[in-house]
Simulated scan of single mutants.
Amino acid sequence: MINLIVRLIVSSVVVIVAGRVLQGFYVDSIQTAVIVAIVMGVLNTIVKPILQFLSLPITIMTLGLFYFIINILIVYLCAYLVDGFSVSSAIAALLFSLGLSLAQGIAGLFLD
Rank of each mutant, 00 (worst) to 15 (best):
G99P: 14
P57Q: 09
G108R: 09
M61D: 01
L98G: 10
R7M: 13
L77K: 05
A33E: 05
I72N: 08
G99S: 15
M1Q: 13
V82R: 03
T59N: 15
S89Y: 07
S88M: 00
F110T: 07
T62F: 02
T32P: 04
N3I: 07
V13C: 07
G41A: 09
T45R: 07
L100P: 08
I38A: 12
K48P: 05
L4V: 14
A79I: 11
L65D: 05
V87D: 04
L73P: 13
F85A: 01
V42N: 06
M1E: 09
Y26S: 10
I35Q: 09
L73W: 15
D28Y: 09
A107V: 11
I50D: 03
F85G: 01
D112E: 13
G19R: 02
L54A: 15
Q23G: 13
I70E: 07
S88T: 08
G84N: 01
D112S: 14
N71H: 13
L63H: 03
V13Q: 00
G84V: 08
N3P: 05
L94N: 08
I46M: 12
G24I: 06
A18W: 04
T45D: 00
L51E: 10
V75R: 09
I72E: 08
V10F: 12
G64P: 14
L63R: 04
I91L: 15
D112M: 11
S12K: 00
V36C: 07
I38W: 01
T45M: 10
V13E: 01
F53G: 12
M61V: 15
P49K: 06
G99N: 11
L73Q: 13
R20C: 00
Y26A: 10
Y76R: 10
S101M: 06
T32W: 03
N3L: 06
I50Y: 05
F96E: 03
I91T: 14
A93E: 11
F53R: 14
V14K: 04
M1P: 12
L51W: 13
R7V: 03
F68K: 02
T32N: 04
T62E: 01
C78V: 07
F25M: 03
L111V: 12
I30Y: 07
V14P: 03
A33C: 05
S12V: 05
Q23T: 08
M40Q: 11
I70F: 12
Y76H: 12
S12I: 00
I60Q: 05
Y76L: 13
D83V: 06
A92N: 08
V82E: 03
S101R: 00
D28W: 00
P49L: 02
V10N: 07
A90G: 12
R7S: 10
I58G: 13
S55W: 10
G41K: 05
G84E: 00
M40A: 10
V82W: 07
S12E: 02
S86V: 04
V17K: 00
S86Q: 09
I16G: 08
S12L: 02
I60Y: 09
Y76N: 12
R7K: 15
N3D: 14
V34H: 01
L111K: 06
M40V: 06
S55Y: 11
L51N: 08
V21W: 13
L54D: 11
T62C: 04
